[in-house]
Write a protein that binds this DNA or RNA. Structure first.
Lengths: 189, 189
DNA sequence: GCAACAGGCTAATAACTGTTAGCCTTTCGT
DNA sequence: ACGAAAGGCTAACAGTTATTAGCCTGTTGC
């Protein structure tokens, strides 16, 4: 049964990313795992709950990865590199989750929406602090901490749009190159 | 009458950007200009046509701005800077158009979708060529032309998400800073 | 002055969709 | 062996929505 729920979430994720939340029907999700729409309600509470679970789980994982990436590393340049690598790796490996996570915030109803936005703000603040610390330590040179951290974050979100496992680049290639690009943006030296 | 059509398009643009195409009803659009939903059909053919007009017009303007920005400039570094500035300026000044333009491609039906995607591809190719030319001339130093141009393009799209006229930065501030960031990404020297 | 039309309205149509109700079969613990 | 639960199905409900039909009013070209 728990197996079924995981299948449903996976199918919903794929469909949400392809067509969007509103354009995906419960019948579509059911068809993707071989059952009818109404049968889904034996496993999940509602379509909205499905979206909420996907989005909060995604944000949790992202925050955990971020913390894990920078913990135990003191060098400010290396911390930014590792955080960016974790950011980009997540957006490549879990591109559907990341894509839906950014695209469907407006389809999320309260109180889940506010909750997800709070975690997003925390995540953004983490990056802003990394850049600010580097500037403070005179290791980075930027025109604006805020703009620079936005820029680094945007690079990652972009990855979730165009990255394909079958594409020209391996996950590691993208991760390492974008790590370098982040340090360039920060004017690391 | 032409006045009315412009009002309708403006209202539709705002609503599409706030709630998304699917979540916006014809009644919503009508209410925004003070008439009922069905009355809209005296001015526009369909909701889909409204979206198509917004998106194709947006892509046309973007391409025109791009050409205008780089024409008459030979220096490869300066060309990338100007193209990036035009890119960012457009995404700041016409943030709703740009936002809807990237977010609602999947809501666009054929043949308009293919048409918009074709112009997008042309636009992306323009940036890729700018980067490639700089590498060729030994003025840029990048790990991958493709990844670098994706990164520069993604920065601009990000601007259309977070930029507000009433925010911390003027349009020019964002434009000039992002121009510099693009050159950093390209490893210009 | 009046015919035509521009442009609004309400009512109706024809889907579509999330969700609930109620039924039936298979599985499984005891 | 059997009662119950799991998990599927169809039918039905209630609501929404794009679009069309048909009507009415004010303006306007002639």
């Amino acid at each position: 049964m728990a197996v079924r729920v995981a299948d449903i979430r996976a199918a919903a994720l794929t469909l949400f990313s392809e067509r969007g939340y509103q354009a995906t029907t419960m019948a579509d999700i059911g068809a993707a795992i071989g059952i009818r729409g109404p049968s889904l309600y034996k496993h999940v509470g509602s379509k909205q709950e499905l979206l909420a679970q996907i989005m909060t789980a995604t944000m949790d994982t992202l925050l955990e990865n971020h913390e894990a990436a920078i913990s135990g590393c003191e060098d400010v340049t290396e911390r930014l590199r590792r955080a960016t690598e974790a950011h980009v790796r997540f957006h490549a490996r879990h591109r559907l989750e990341a894509f839906v996570g950014t695209r469907e915030i407006r389809s999320l109803e309260e109180p889940h929406r506010a909750e997800v936005l709070r975690r997003r703000a925390r995540y953004e603040h983490g990056f802003r602090k990394l850049v600010a610390d580097g500037v403070q330590a005179d290791r980075f040179r930027v025109a604006s901490v805020k703009l620079t951290s936005y820029a680094i974050l945007d690079l990652g979100m972009g990855v979730s749009v165009w990255y394909r496992e079958s594409g020209d680049f391996t996950e590691d290639q993208v991760v390492y190159q974008y790590g370098d690009l982040a340090l360039r943006l920060a004017g690391a030296r």
